[in-house]
Design a protein around this nucleic acid. Structure first.
Lengths: 135, 135
DNA sequence: TTAATACCTGCGAACAAATTGCAGAAGCAA
DNA sequence: TTGCTTCTGCAATTTGTTCGCAGGTATTAA
């Protein structure tokens, strides 16, 4: 068979809710469970918040999405294939900016060489003040 | 007068609870509100959790303590004068290691020069795998 | 196509963490 | 000491997340 659905390939059932959650995460870039639910509801009003939480967890288990901690307590979910940037969280306006992973390459190497610490670059948020707010 | 209490200098009232919370944060190095409460209760059983939260907030407002996000949802508080290191949070064992701020100097400069982002080095946790766990 | 069987979903309850309102207690200036 | 204001303790509330269960549905094999 030429095209197995990516969810089926992971041994998951192909439910509308699950597809919608995955699609929402991909479209939103980064989003809290709440935001994902809201997005999904814009086309499928009936979906339950528990279902969103359970699917995010399930999708994370099979590696299709990941979560990071951007502060404020809640986890933020990302599509796995899109985690190619750092998150620059502005402490003033709360905006989330991006920077390529390469910007941290030196830093990661330093930590590895000097402290034996293997940084997971995809799982960390950087706090500070964005360009706009530092004026 | 030679010695104004540091809390009074900030315009705060000098209550036993407030002093205990500040002292606990200093002794613990980094601690969640829950841990601070527990520490304070070891000598002052009656103290209320709300009081701990409110005092942490108050102390943060006047700059005596700071909080960082080390993941897991909860904030972690530090005495302001001790924030001279980065936090290396191990995703395997959960341990919190230290590294001097200088290790990030290049990284911070890169973000500032290339993206106009002023990183608050004291407010960010770095995820990865510590030396012990990466063996 | 149908039937069997996991797996999923929706719902409500349960839970934990953090916050708030209020009344009384305590710190502080005069 | 008096009086004002802030702080504390308590209880209730809010918010974010998880869980149990009963019914529904995707999937496989007949």
């Amino acid at each position: 068979m030429a095209k197995q659905h990516e969810l089926r390939e992971k041994g998951l059932r192909l439910t509308p809710q699950r597809e919608l959650v995955l699609q929402a995460v991909r479209e939103l870039g980064h989003a809290t469970p709440e935001e994902v639910a809201e997005k999904v509801r814009s086309t499928h009003p009936g979906i339950n918040l528990s279902t969103v939480y359970r699917n995010l967890e399930t999708l994370e288990n099979v590696g299709l999405v990941l979560h990071t901690h951007l502060g404020h307590g809640g986890a933020t979910y990302h599509a796995a294939e899109e985690l190619t940037h750092l998150h620059l969280v502005c402490s003033v306006c709360g905006s989330i900016g991006d920077a390529p992973i390469e910007a941290a390459a030196n830093f990661v190497n330093t930590l590895s060489d000097d402290y034996g610490f293997k940084t997971d670059v995809t799982h960390f948020a950087i706090y500070g003040t964005c360009q706009k707010c530092s004026k």
